[in-house]
Design a binder for these strands. Structure first.
Length: 486
RNA sequence: GGCGGCGUACCCAAGUGGCUAAGGGAGAGGUCUGCAAAACCUUUAUGCGCCGGUUCGAAUCCGGCCGCCGCCUCCA
């Protein structure tokens, strides 16, 4: 496997610290507001990274934190007039609601900053004792110029940064780039006792303390959004390596941003969509497919049109599975070989290797999905050729199974066509129940049997207007929810 | 100002030295169908922002130019 390491700026062979095991830490969220689609991208991308390592038979230990104490949480608490820990609790719950819906698996360990205060204090103390940090009036700062490697991740020198600094100058800091490890509490703010007086941890220190506690002083992969490279991850490296005198992380992985009209989606620009706004109108599987349709390091433009395209793609998969199901139910027992059957067999033979080759190359999900749809087309070609017999049955079943299995790594393609369509019925808020649709279907079946095409077409048109498409096949009539611009 | 990235068909998007430049969407034509739908087939980039260069050979490497974006402040 090859992964792009932000630290080296190139793709590298992935060699785990311990053979067969991989330890991953991903920066989660600060729980002070609803998550937007950018948070979803990061969550989905690293969820897939984790699933792929597992597919590759690695023993994966996956840690993702919650920042549950921070200035933003304190401010939010003031705004809402509720205690700060109530804010954290509420938005942690909302996080789970969104991420569970998106099919993001829970991490093996989900540490919270407030549950690691002793570890954080111990680490800050070590840094002070070693002379990497200094205390000023109850605040403790990391002294950046004491750490020679500072800037190695974000590829800048300290001089450049100081020169172009837009950082507000704090007179108490020895250098504008020095960052807070511990912040003294102001009147009425949440606080924990420490050797420097009551206060709370700075933002960066929690990730160092928690990742090292749960994964060790050196671990394999640290991930997050590209906006965390500087200063967050740069600072994590400085304080962690200063503390342990060991390399902190072997591979740094960063996902690209979501853009709207080519501009980065962000809280401050206000051009963001929350996950639940999107899930109100699109199926979670569609959102995942959308987020994985572009390589994880590239920017991805968010638009309604793109989501609809993804919906059409996913629908294509389930339509094909439905075709296979219906076909196999009625397939005659006689054997009938076709050339297309052989072509499918051949394509299926190399399919997993192609999938793995794509994913091995820095998690190229876009290419992997491309291979999946090539297989979908070949399945359809095979069905069109109307093969029959046990080996054809086995082949079609295996092909669908291969798509489900590889789809499992991306957590797509996991439902039945019936589940997909009944879910679409709800997502699109169609004013029809499945019972009603089936009733109309049997009415139409009678009409067609009587060759009353007018009535049959009328029923079809009515359903079409209500968002349901009918397909008459030799094996009977099936219904689907209308997607895209049909 | 410093550092970095991107520019592939009507749209999205893979491809980073060598077979016909994946895949999806949209459009057009066709096969199938009672008619449709779905599916399949054909078709839509002699060319990968522009100009040079390296090479037997470049979308892919190098240089310049144009355009877009990101980071340097909280941010996934």
């Amino acid at each position: 496997m090859r992964v792009y390491n932000t630290l080296s700026g190139k793709k590298e062979d992935f060699i785990p610290l311990e053979p067969g095991r991989v330890k991953i830490y991903v920066c989660g969220v600060t729980v002070y507001d609803y998550c937007h689609i950018g948070h979803a991208r990061s969550a989905v991308v690293f969820d897939v990274v984790r699933r792929y390592f597992r597919y590759r038979n690695f023993d994966v230990r996956y840690v993702r934190n919650f920042t549950d104490i921070d200035d933003k949480i304190i401010n939010r608490a003031k705004e809402e007039g509720i205690p700060w820990d109530e804010v954290a609790r509420k938005y942690t719950e909302e996080y789970y609601r969104d991420m569970d819906a998106l099919g993001i698996e829970r991490a093996d360990v989900e540490p919270r900053a407030t549950e690691h205060i002793p570890e954080i204090i111990a680490m800050v103390k070590t840094l002070v004792d070693k002379g990497y940090a200094y205390e000023v009036g109850g605040d403790v700062y990391f002294e950046v110029k004491r750490f020679p490697g500072y800037g190695k991740l974000s590829k800048r020198s300290m001089d450049e940064m100081v020169a172009g600094a837009r950082v507000e100058v704090d007179e108490r800091k020895r250098n504008p780039l020095d960052f807070a490890l511990w912040k003294a509490a102001k009147e009425g703010e949440p606080a924990w006792e420490s050797p420097w007086g009551p206060g709370r941890p700075g933002w960066h220190i929690e990730c160092s303390a928690m990742s090292m506690k749960h994964l060790g002083e050196t671990f394999d992969i640290h991930g997050g959004g590209a906006d965390l490279i500087f200063p967050h991850h740069e600072n994590e490296i400085a304080q962690s390596e200063a503390c342990t005198e060991k390399p902190f992380v072997r591979y740094w992985l960063h996902n690209g941003f979501i853009t709207i009209s080519k501009e980065k989606m962000s809280k401050s620009l206000g051009n963001f969509f929350t996950i639940r706004e999107i899930l109100d109108r699109f199926d979670p599987e569609v959102v995942r497919a959308f987020l994985l349709s572009t390589h994880y390091r590239s920017p991805i433009e968010f638009s309604e049109e793109q989501l609809i395209e993804s919906e059409v793609s996913i629908n294509r998969f389930y339509s094909t599975v439905m075709r296979v199901e219906v076909y196999l139910e009625r397939m005659s027992g006689k054997t009938r070989k076709t050339a297309e059957e052989e072509m499918l067999r051949e394509m299926l033979g190399g399919f997993r290797a192609r999938f793995e080759e794509a994913m091995d190359d820095d998690f190229n999900t876009a290419l992997a999905i491309g291979h999946m749809y090539e297989l979908v087309r070949e399945i359809n070609r095979c069905l069109d050729s109307k093969p029959a017999g046990g080996s054809a049955r086995e082949l079609l079943t295996e092909a669908v199974e291969a798509l489900r299995e590889t789809g499992g790594v991306l957590n797509i393609f996991q439902r039945s066509p019936a589940q997909w369509h009944s879910s679409l019925l709800r997502t699109k808020k169609l004013p029809l129940t499945e019972e009603e649709i089936n009733r109309r279907l049997s009415e139409r079946r009678e009409a067609r049997r009587a060759r009353d095409w007018q009535k049959a077409d009328r029923i079809r048109d009515e359903l079409q207007k209500a968002g349901i498409v009918l397909e008459d096949t030799p094996e009977g009539t099936v219904w689907r929810v209308k997607v895209g611009s049909e």
